[in-house]
Design a protein around this nucleic acid. Sequence first.
DNA 1: CAGCAGATGCGACAAAGTCGCGTCTATAGC
DNA 2: GCTATAGACGCGACTTTGTCGCATCTGCTG
Lengths: 143, 143
Amino acid sequence: MSRLAQLPSQGYRRTTQRGAILDILEASGGHLTAAEIIDAIAERRLPVNRSTVYRTLETLLDAGLVRASRLGRSTSYELTHPEGEVEHHHLVCRECQAMLHVTGSGVTEILRAEAAQAGFRVEDVQLVATGLCRKCRRSRRRP
Amino acid sequence: MSRLAQLPSQGYRRTTQRGAILDILEASGGHLTAAEIIDAIAERRLPVNRSTVYRTLETLLDAGLVRASRLGRSTSYELTHPEGEVEHHHLVCRECQAMLHVTGSGVTEILRAEAAQAGFRVEDVQLVATGLCRKCRRSRRRP
DNA sequence: CAGCAGATGCGACAAAGTCGCGTCTATAGC
DNA sequence: GCTATAGACGCGACTTTGTCGCATCTGCTG
């Protein structure tokens, strides 16, 4: 079931603009800022207005299809459950901004269980750990 | 040891402006946006320029004293290891933006161990789970 | 297939964040 | 302490990012 097709059940219409933005996020596979999405639309010569991009991102957040996060310097957007989802989380170096991934840690299940006790249904978990990567730890020791 | 005093060891100077912003974050105990910090400074009639607030936040991020996150709609800042720190994570309802906390889940330790295998030293973990709170789940069933 | 609420385009606007440059000050070395 | 200086700050102009009102258009429902 395509993501776009999930919108009606949430009370939102499926429109070509929303499809376009979902496609771009899907194609990128990663984290895109609003500005990058706007650029991608311009490149592909898609008829989506700038205001619509911002409004659509809010809508997709509300619908739970997209999550926003601040990794490093700026806010970026990515799909919540990508194809063949494997739980993955982020390690961001506060020195060089390098990003590593940790997969299959089981964190999602732990949270889901904890949250359930409060009546909260977890749909998406994002975790960002910051610290120092191997390289930057070394260069600290002998500056 | 005050946070401010940690700066020199990281290669940053301790200044009154940095102290003021750390104080404000400490006093608030929670998440403040850049705008809220600027307002707090104005209220207390502290002599800290707007540009300085932005630059300082970047510095404090680099120094690992502050973390930025996007909870709900906008980017906010909070201290990384508050006094008497207990691990706590966030549940944000995508419908009503309500925020709940989950404490002492053990997630931090799991991540620390996983990251260590990649040579990454975790200094701070932030976790944001989105989904639907009890109230919004109910109102969905009978709209 | 008609009606209409919801979505989009457009352009003006507001808010948020950045930058260059002159001045000031925290710190290291004396 | 005193001084030199790199780093930090203030200021104001500027850019970027995000918002809003309103006219038009378009999925959806009956």
